[in-house]
Every structure is written in C-alpha cells, then in structure tokens.
C-alpha cells in the first residue's frame, strides 16, 4: 500500500492484560478513506485490537502494549503523545448507543466545547447531524433529551458527536449489534457515505455486514495460547468469495470448530 494511502499502521503489536497475552504480533496497514472490518470468533481480540488505535486500552488497569501503532507515520504510544488528543482525531462509536444525558444539540456540541471551538456552534452541530443523516429527523427537537430518540437514532447521534470534532478516523465496535434490521441498514448506509471523508475501522460479528460495508477485511483468531492473532487480511470481495487461508474459509462458511 502506498504510504499516502495509509492512515494507520500497526507493527508487531502485542497487547497484555497483566501477564495475559491478549494479542500477538499483529502487523497491518489501515487504508485512508476506506472501511476496514475486523472479524473473528468471540474472544479473538477484535475489540482489544480496535481499542489500540486510539489508546482506549490505556483506560484498562494492567493493560500494556508492545510494538507500534503509527498514525500519520508517528507512534501514538510514544511517551510524548497526549492520548486525549489522539482520541479526538481517532474517534470511537460503541456497541450500545451511549448519548450523554443532555439535549440532542448539547450531545453534538459537547466535544467542540471541550476543544474550545470558536466557530458558529449552531452551524457545526447542523453539519455533523447532516453528515450522520440525522438532521431531518431531529431538526425540530434539538433541545429535547437525546434519550427520546430511538436506538438507531441514538447511535447516529453518537456518530454525529464523533464527527463533530472532525476526526480523521472513526473506530466502530459492533455499532449496529443492538439495533433492529432497518436501523442497522441505516448505519451501514451511513458508513458507506462517510468513508469518502473519514477512515473507518469496524468490528462486527455479522459477516454479511462486514461483506456489505467494508473494503478490506482482517480475520483474527485465538491461538492455542489464547492470544489473538491475524490470520488473513485483504480485499473484502476476495475474502468472502475466495479466501486464501483455509481457516478463514472455515470461519466465513460457518464450519469453524
């Protein structure tokens, strides 16, 4: 992959929780303005891996990371790097929608206020809600509680909140697993729309979803030592029609044992 097309690069990544090795020796590149899906069975370390991209694992007591995660060529785990700053450039959306107990408007404006945003806040909020395909549904009730929204709308609000601070990358940890099929499709459509201007890394258990939304897919498994490792990484179309590795084939055809 050409360097200007790489937004994140992982080199020999290993993650530990105390003495437990959760991930071992992962090296891969995340392309800019594409959707990269991380798939694999439960416990293989997909979410742990995802959290490495914006140092969310730092918040877990006893966790430690070895190797490098390069963002725009610089190691985000270097001692001088401010993790909070990284998280504003590499945002995150979680499995369960987690709006703040505030109004819709305040949810979106929150990150901007913290960052000392000096521009027109109303316009910035509208722009983020439009990008998250939520504006038309909430424009008349911006001052209502975010909890009045449906689950799917709350998740899009969380995406709008992440978008408001203009991140370069958004990490999504099973963003549609708590949603109904219609809301799920809305999120998937949104992901495809957003990836022209934001790079997205998504963890999903739903292989059809990975096949629908992603450009690249990484398949992780848990080894005999219970550490997660990368089995295969490549073009999504290729992965789901003709994977190179027989373990990938077994997993995506449901013959995994």
């Amino acid at each position: 992959m050409e360097q200007q097309n790489v937004v994140l690069e992982v080199r020999d990544l290993r993650v530990f929780y105390g003495s437990f090795n959760a991930l071992r020796d992962i090296s891969m590149e995340i392309p800019r303005y594409q959707v990269t899906a991380l798939i694999g069975p439960s416990g293989c370390g997909k979410s742990t891996f995802l959290r490495c991209f914006n140092r969310m694992n730092d918040l877990i007591a006893g966790s430690s990371v070895q190797g490098q995660v390069l963002y725009r060529g610089n190691d985000i785990y270097a001692p001088t790097v401010d993790a909070t700053r990284i998280r504003s450039e590499i945002g995150m959306v979680f499995q369960k929608p987690n709006p703040f107990p505030k109004t819709i408007y305040e949810n979106v404006a929150f990150g901007l206020k913290i960052n000392g945003y000096q521009g027109n806040m109303g316009e910035a909020v509208e722009r983020s809600l439009r990008r998250a395909a939520l504006w038309d549904e909430v424009k008349d009730r911006l001052n209502k509680s975010a909890f009045q929204l449906s689950g799917g709308q709350q998740q899009r609000l969380c995406i709008a909140r992440a978008l408001a601070v203009e991140p370069e990358v958004i990490l999504m940890d099973e963003p549609a697993s708590a949603l109904d099929p219609i809301a799920t499709l809305a999120i998937e459509e949104l992901i495809r729309e957003l990836c022209v201007e934001v790079s997205i890394v998504i963890v999903t258990h739903n292989m059809q979803q990975a096949a629908r939304v992603s450009d690249q897919t990484a398949f992780l498994m848990m080894g005999g030592d219970r550490a997660g490792y990368l089995v295969e990484y490549g073009d999504t179309k290729e992965m789901f029609t003709n994977p190179r590795n027989e373990r990938t084939e077994a997993y995506i055809t449901g013959r995994f044992s």
């Binding site: 059809q208 789901f240 029609t241 003709n242 084939e249 055809t253």
Partner: peptide, 9 residues
C-alpha cells in the same frame, strides 16, 4: 443460508 466463499461458488 447466505453462503460465502466456496459455498457461494
């Protein structure tokens, strides 16, 4: 069944 990979082929 939404077959994938060799099953789809």
């Amino acid at each position: 069944q939404q077959p994938m990979a060799v099953d789809l082929r």
